[in-house]
Nucleic acid binder design. Sequence first.
DNA 1: GATGAATGAGGGTTCATTCAT
DNA 2: TATGAATGAACCCTCATTCAT
Lengths: 217, 217, 217, 217
Amino acid sequence: MECQLKKRWARRKEARPQELLAAALDLFVERGFNATRLDDVAKLAGVSKGTLYLYFANKEELFKAVIRENMVPALDEAEDVIARHEGHSADLFRELVMGWWARVGNTKAAGISKLLMAEAGNFPEIARFHHEEVVKRRDAMIARALERGIARGEFRQVDTKEAISVLAAPIVMLMTWNTSFNACRIDPIDPQHYLDCFIDIFLNGLLCQPVRGKQAV
Amino acid sequence: MECQLKKRWARRKEARPQELLAAALDLFVERGFNATRLDDVAKLAGVSKGTLYLYFANKEELFKAVIRENMVPALDEAEDVIARHEGHSADLFRELVMGWWARVGNTKAAGISKLLMAEAGNFPEIARFHHEEVVKRRDAMIARALERGIARGEFRQVDTKEAISVLAAPIVMLMTWNTSFNACRIDPIDPQHYLDCFIDIFLNGLLCQPVRGKQAV
Amino acid sequence: MECQLKKRWARRKEARPQELLAAALDLFVERGFNATRLDDVAKLAGVSKGTLYLYFANKEELFKAVIRENMVPALDEAEDVIARHEGHSADLFRELVMGWWARVGNTKAAGISKLLMAEAGNFPEIARFHHEEVVKRRDAMIARALERGIARGEFRQVDTKEAISVLAAPIVMLMTWNTSFNACRIDPIDPQHYLDCFIDIFLNGLLCQPVRGKQAV
Amino acid sequence: MECQLKKRWARRKEARPQELLAAALDLFVERGFNATRLDDVAKLAGVSKGTLYLYFANKEELFKAVIRENMVPALDEAEDVIARHEGHSADLFRELVMGWWARVGNTKAAGISKLLMAEAGNFPEIARFHHEEVVKRRDAMIARALERGIARGEFRQVDTKEAISVLAAPIVMLMTWNTSFNACRIDPIDPQHYLDCFIDIFLNGLLCQPVRGKQAV
DNA sequence: GATGAATGAGGGTTCATTCAT
DNA sequence: TATGAATGAACCCTCATTCAT
């Protein structure tokens, strides 16, 4: 009996940070960093406010942990996809976009992008941290995929450095819009259609052998 | 004359709102809506805190006025460009993008997009206002340009509703990134190159007769 | 023509304080001293805020002037009634009560009592002023009427000093309640019935030869 | 033990509300609702401003709690007196008046009446609350006592509805005057004499068999 | 005399953070 | 380890008062 109790407590103890991070992600995304009360984060995680400070030095550190927790695994996976991929780069492109959507975009974690845009100014350190740990890796990934396509003669020769951002933009925006719909949009964007349209236009703009999508030209 | 302008009691009812709006835009963009102190806005405009309230009912109304002041003229102008345009839709596309960049993107006003993404959740009324007064008009504009191109057989048949957002995304993101560079980026994006790349890829993705840019295909 | 204009202005100038006092009485009574904005007083009087300060040194002085303006004439008149009265003191009592009601209680000025209770603590000088200029005269008046009745053998021998306040209380309260009804009462007191009841009970309590009102004893 | 009470981190969740209510009553009565700074209330209770908000949602709720805390017990007790009373209604009347004086009038709580008159206009919700929770009960109580006297043939037939207010008035006024004396009166009313006089006049006005008080008639 | 733009101190309220228990 | 009572700095907004015109 006592043993079980201890075990439960012990397991509890190790689960705490995860529970707090999950609660924090939920509320940060829903309400924004500033508007999120640590009281509510603690309550949602089922602990008291004081406990939060046992695991995270302050609100900012909690934010950083939320970013790390939610972005790193998805990046690992995406890098894996690129490394393993064989075949036409258009397919790799599609797979990456769709995979990212399934792994992040369709998730609460999609709101992190918005959060960062919002708070970059107020918390330069967080912005730098995010740039180091997330943006750089993401951009490197896209670069690899693009360069692979160009090297294989499947993509046109484009300015890789700029193309990375141009390519990332519609996805980041979709995540942002999708996150904030409840608040302002009456006619929500349908993510699936949006992504199809994006891939259609973008691939057509990129391919050496354009494939005219729905219509036969 | 100039000396008068410095006077404490200078009666400048006409100039005040503009000065306050300019100061507010500066600080809102730099620090975010929440983190901006009205005290600082007033100080930057060279007046006392109370004066601000002679011209704007509260912080939220000030924000709305900032949006109106900075976006409406640019939208007017862009609509004018579309209405007057004759010739190939690719040129219209280029002109619109570059015009918007010159008129807004290259300006402090570029930060408004970021502000809205950040604060949409916390201030639904502002989000609704922005959607009504800015987003709707912007989207309608892009729709007109797209449909014009399709009708004239210059653009492929794409799903207009989604394409609007896909096309707007890279520009909105550029404005956002460009605004927040100081805080987080080490390798800033060059707007001109970015826009060239965007136009190159997306226009080619849209055109019936793709013109493969720098390389001969 | 010019002469007329000047005349009108001149007349205006002399009327200003009265207009301001009337506006101030209205708003003080309706909203309380603190909640009344000098801006609104000025607006109601049809002048600008600055003008108010040409006639009254500050808000407190305006308050004192309002008291003086509205109470002194009614007191003069009531003293006159006592001085002139001949006949039974019960009739004098009735006449005084009803006269006061017609002259003050039924008027915006009735609210001044409430104002004073509210602000006595915050503005001791106003309280002292009111006590000197109003309460003392009012009490002296009641004392004269009481003592007249006792001296003529019409009233019982009562402790004059206390009876003054006991007699004043129901009238002051009626003015107060009547003023604040809109805000809190659902079943408003009917002033006429209330005064009848007050006179019935208190007069019977004072008289040597009680006249039992509605019922024959 | 006593030392513990002085500690900064003394956990006194149970005692706090009472201490805060006592401090609030003191200051509200002394300075009025508006003029009382929550900072001062907190300081007087020996806590910081923030602590106040752990126990009361806002200033208005604090006020309502002050009313409840101080009036409800006295009303309970008075109702009990009526319920238990046997014997002549004149004695009940005396007991009620004197009991109320001992329980409320002689207390800081006496100032609550004044507060309400003063603030009824500015805070309608408080006025409604007070009317519901205090005035109605008080009036019902007086009504019962009056009707009891009439039913037993001890009091004259008077218009109960009006008599209630006429009767309450002198007591409410005494509480008000007694509270604000420090500020304005030079010749304070002696509550005991005042109440004697009031009871004397009022009972004589009410009784079927008048008892001529101090003097033999 | 009259105006009204400008001032700036002041107060209610919130919430990240602390620390005795 | 966990708690939650307590803190206090910070900010939006109001409004009596001033004074250049």
